Amino acid sequence: MTFPPTHPALARAIAARGYTSATAVQTAVLEADAAGRDMVVSAQTGSGKTVAFGLAIAPTLLGSEERLPQAGAPMALIIAPTRELAMQVQRELIWLYRETGARVVTCVGGMDARAEARNLASGAHIVVGTPGRLRDHLERQRLDLATLKTIVLDEADEMLDLGFREDLEFILEATPPTRQTLLFSATMPHEIENLARRYQRDAIRIATTRGHEQHVDIEYRAIRVAPFDIENAVVNVLRFNEAPAAIVFCATR
């Protein structure tokens, strides 16, 4: 499918990037009845959701204007569970909003908080950050959310699993009640439903995944291994597949 109509500045950025078709979640957030609405979106990592919420918040941020006003207090806040994801989101939004003059900055754990404070003081249209660092900037009065227009919780289920509920609630309470609130989550446990009921208004529900549906572009294999032989099995699997890069997930740190 081709890209549905979107803001002209973003449409040009998408065309320049060489994208000719929209993913399911991108198409869904661009439906006419979704414009400017709060949303609860079920979407997997790798589904194009970063571009999706970038497109979804454009009407709220830009309206009919081609460019954003001079950067000051942030107009949009994107919250992600990890530094790596936050920085990836920043990179995606920079190219998507390039023609709007958007200034996109990050506030994430493990980076220089004083440099982040200087970036915030210089003004930003969009701030992307992790819950703990964003709360820290709020408590130190370095981050002003008084005029925020929209907020996105990316991978909300992951943030709750990591114990960020209190930080998220603290941040949400500091935002104007008139904000647009977008909640993106791969799964929809009761905690997510409760968060949506408390902080969203007449949210539209968008589901692009079904239950435990796997990624269509990933091959899955199961190998039964004796507990005492796990390390040897991992090494042998990596050697057998000759993978130039791999991620090994473990039960604990």
Rank of each mutant, 00 (worst) to 15 (best):
R224G: 14
P69K: 08
L182H: 07
Q26N: 13
D144R: 15
F240T: 14
V25S: 08
I192S: 00
E155A: 06
M159T: 06
V51L: 02
H125M: 10
D217I: 00
R135K: 11
L68A: 13
V40S: 07
F184W: 09
D161H: 11
R179G: 14
A207I: 01
L55N: 04
F184R: 02
R165F: 10
M111I: 08
A76P: 04
V51Y: 01
V104F: 05
A9G: 02
V105Q: 03
I57Y: 04
D217F: 10
N194L: 11
Y19N: 12
A11P: 03
Q180A: 06
A35F: 09
A73K: 07
A124P: 10
E116D: 09
T82G: 04
A13M: 03
T45H: 12
R37A: 15
I79M: 06
R253H: 12
A35S: 15
Y199D: 05
T100Q: 03
A243R: 04
H215N: 11
A56I: 13
A52C: 05
D33N: 09
E84P: 11
P177D: 07
E31V: 02
I218M: 10
A24G: 04
R118M: 12
E169A: 05
G110P: 00
A34Q: 15
I247F: 13
V51N: 01
K149Y: 02
E166I: 09
L10G: 08
R198P: 03
R67N: 10
F240R: 14
A16P: 00
A24Y: 00
A9E: 00
G18D: 13
G109C: 01
S185P: 03
Q70M: 04
P5D: 15
H212K: 12
F170P: 00
L10S: 04
R17G: 05
I192D: 05
E219H: 07
Y19D: 14
D38P: 01
E139F: 14
R103E: 01
A243P: 01
H137S: 07
P69N: 06
T175L: 06
C107A: 15
R140K: 13
G63W: 00
